[in-house]
Write a protein that binds this DNA or RNA. Structure first.
Lengths: 249, 249
DNA sequence: TCTTTTTATTTGCATATGCAAATGGAGCTT
DNA sequence: AAGCTCCATTTGCATATGCAAATAAAAAGA
């Protein structure tokens, strides 16, 4: 544990002490100051630095562990956890995984890529300003060689400057973003629409047949990262979630 | 606090003491032994009954409070909370509410009701055994007088014997069930399908146009309560959810 | 060098103690 | 009856203490 790391923990004086400690550490994690894998100072170190008792520090850390932000092991200490990959319902965050879980072989093809100012059409589709620079991608994902889902995505280079040097030849952009970006907010919308002729042709279905449209936008602290439209042929897909009234089970 | 109430709390000896206490009380709540509004014994009473220190009892109760199962107030004590009405994504649990939030006037009409053994068709649609007794209902919900969603539902009288005496003239079955049943498990599935001619006519849309199909089944401790199919005209509806990687925000 | 044993570090759990904050209800005053 | 003050109850927070369990790393042994 370096000095800089423990010095990053500062309290704001608002509310119970254990909660100040909890929030201080949580914020360091969410802001990316302590990326996944970073080791968190041991209880006695925080105790001295913050002038709190060990029980109080323990209470803060135990709660963060319950929330899944940190992992704790006796003797080895505490480390920042990796964000959970899936999240109850609708977390088809990774299409390769999704296809793999169906027991099918995954592949994908980039249909188009364009870097620069969004075209009028793309800007409208993703609710962007006309002068915003984005990377716009269109991809088709296959399961056992058959079209699985059509992906239409914009990535904001402001949040992800590395995107310019990435060809997405090895990893589809969704998975690349999962690995390389930190997000704190996401919004999902699901609707049913009829396939347009060009979309239908790519997905090898009849024009006008029902499709499930999943639109997802993600942010990091209100800075947009990416927005994606995933079009699934209707008959072949359903999204299932199971939970109890007090949270996912 | 009656004697029977505190005597219901029994530990199983497995794992940490605070967690045994937590689970014991949680189970009483989930099983319906302590329905919402029941007052939970004060810390000192549990402390004596269980032979634990107050801090340990407090730890169990504080965690249940964070999980939302109980409400605690100084001096007035602890009571069992009502289950949260909505739950992130997809919790269109109440259609009247859903319509109300759109600022539209709600109404509904029962198209059909049948009590008794499920017909072959209904049994197949809801994956029931042929000899199962159910109440089968078909309803149409309206928003500002226009068809909003088509509901097709079965209710298991085994779990809900009161259903026989309920006409659903005042309250649609979904809301009635929310008020009168306790559920511990739910499963949602969303898919996109083309409207069948009879469905299309009721919803006043074209046959074959895309619809969002939400199927939900609920159980109480593995005993089925109800299963419902909600058919939403595609263009007019989308389900939106917003959350962060560490849980709903 | 490889294996075993020991040691030291770190977290986990439970207790006892003390005080603070909130507040329902009793009792008092007007 | 209405409002006020005071008191008792209950939860909330923080500390200090002690021991237990897990285990990484060091030391000892083969």
């Amino acid at each position: 544990m370096s000095a800089t790391q423990i010095d990053a923990v500062t309290l704001d004086g608002a509310g119970p002490l254990y909660d100040q400690i909890r929030r201080a550490i949580r914020d360091l994690i969410l802001a990316g100051t302590w990326p996944p894998g970073t080791s968190v100072p041991p209880e006695h170190a925080l105790m001295e630095k913050l002038g709190a008792s060990r029980m109080t520090v323990h209470r803060a850390l135990a709660q963060l562990a319950r929330e899944g932000l940190i992992l704790r092991r006796r003797r080895s200490g505490t480390v920042v956890a990796s964000p959970p990959a899936s999240h109850a319902m609708l977390d088809i965050l990774s299409i390769p995984e999704e296809v793999g879980e169906l027991g099918q072989a995954y592949s994908y093809r980039i249909l188009q890529r364009r870097d620069g100012k969004a075209s009028r059409e793309v800007a409208a589709r993703f609710e962007l300003g006309r002068s915003v620079n984005v990377t716009h991608l269109t991809l088709l994902h296959f399961a056992d060689g058959a079209p699985h889902v059509l992906e239409d995505r914009v990535i904001h280079p402001t949040a992800m400057p590395q995107v310019a040097d990435e060809s997405f030849a090895q990893t589809p952009p969704g998975d690349w973003l999962l690995q390389n970006s930190l997000w704190t907010q996401a919004e999902h919308a699901i609707s049913a629409i009829a396939a347009e002729p060009d979309e239908a042709e790519l997905l090898k279905i009849e024009a006008g047949s029902p499709c499930l449209l999943v639109e997802r936008r993600t942010w990091n602290q209100s800075e947009p990262i990416t927005a994606v439209r995933l079009l699934y042929p209707g008959g072949r897909h359903r999204f299932v979630g199971r939970f109890g009234p007090y949270g996912a089970v």
